[in-house]
């Protein structure tokens, strides 16, 4: 058995020494990336085309793609977009219409990059209260002795099961905090900033704010209810960041990456006042 032992030992050593670490292959990544949101009722002014970064690329400056012949078309007409530099394209003469299909296309590396989308119609949102009063809590005190205000409910119709998300933003430049204890904490960390909260796109027809817990500053808050398409909601679905789950990211662009999608929105306001 001595011979077989030696054989297995050699086999073992050869395996051991053959350990080598593979690394990400050095593939040049040169796909066109579309970042194109078109808003119902607004001119076409927010389309940007860039190029993806390769792994290990030394220059981390974004590579923009100017000088492309970018066309946008609805069901009847086509329009050429004007390059504005830094990868931006626009055509202010085109006003995006709700409930309308649009197609964007251009040539990149001998392939036609095409993306289609639909601009959803606007949904009117309502808010349960336009003003809410909260007790000021001074630094060092526990507070919370005042009356508990009703939750603020923002609702809209969603019979078709569309995707919505909500942005709550304090418009005050130098907002006063409801709870000064939090202000002190924020000052130590990121500094005092106007409050902003963004929900995730979901199939829903309401959004509720718990004033006592979620409204931390006084002032005029803007609440925007965005109606977005499935391709945008898909950006929030994980495509993973680890090799346990890495997948090609969702995109509605053929022969390219990124997104081309229509958006509509409705804006509401909420005053948060000291009681």
């Amino acid at each position: 058995m001595k011979n077989s032992n030696i054989y297995f030992l050699l086999l073992f050593i050869s395996f051991w020494t053959s350990c080598e670490q593979e690394s990400i292959e050095n593939v040049e990544s040169e796909s066109a990336v579309l970042e194109a949101f078109i808003y119902a009722g607004q001119p076409l002014d927010s389309i940007r085309i860039t190029q993806s970064f390769s792994y290990g690329q030394v220059d981390t400056n974004i590579i923009v793609l100017d000088d492309l012949n970018v066309m946008i078309s609805d069901d009847t007409e086509s329009f050429l977009l004007t390059p504005m530099g830094d990868g931006f394209y626009q055509n202010l003469a085109v006003e995006i219409q709700p409930d309308q299909n649009y197609r964007l296309e251009f040539m990149w590396q001998d392939e036609t990059v095409i993306a289609d989308t639909y601009v959803p119609g606007k949904r009117e949102a309502t808010i349960s209260a336009e003003t809410v009063e909260l007790d000021k809590i001074e630094e060092g005190s526990f507070g919370g002795f005042g009356e508990m205000p009703d939750p603020i409910e923002i609702t809209w119709d969603n019979p078709e099961g569309g995707y919505y998300y909500v942005v709550v933003k304090n418009l005050e430049e130098d907002p006063e905090y409801v709870n000064e204890n939090i202000a002190v904490l924020e000052e130590e960390n990121s500094g005092r900033q106007p409050f902003q909260f963004i929900s995730e796109p979901q199939i829903t027809d309401f959004y509720a704010i718990n004033p006592r817990r979620e409204l931390i500053q006084f002032g005029t808050h803007q609440i925007i209810v965005f109606r977005v398409n499935a391709e945008y909601a898909a950006l929030y679905e994980s495509s993973g960041s680890s090799t346990l789950s890495l997948e090609q990211p969702p995109t509605n662009v053929t022969n390219g990456l990124g997104i081309f999608t229509g958006v509509s929105s409705d804006t509401l306001y909420l005053e948060v006042e000291e009681q």
């Binding site: 990400i24 949101f37 860039t50 792994y55 963004i198 945008y232 950006l235 990211p249 997104i259």
Partner: peptide, 20 residues
Amino acid sequence: PTGYYELTLLDGTTSSFFEV
């Protein structure tokens, strides 16, 4: 990932996506 790209989303945040 062999590369990545970034998108500025409607909420103003910038997110990175991997080209795999």
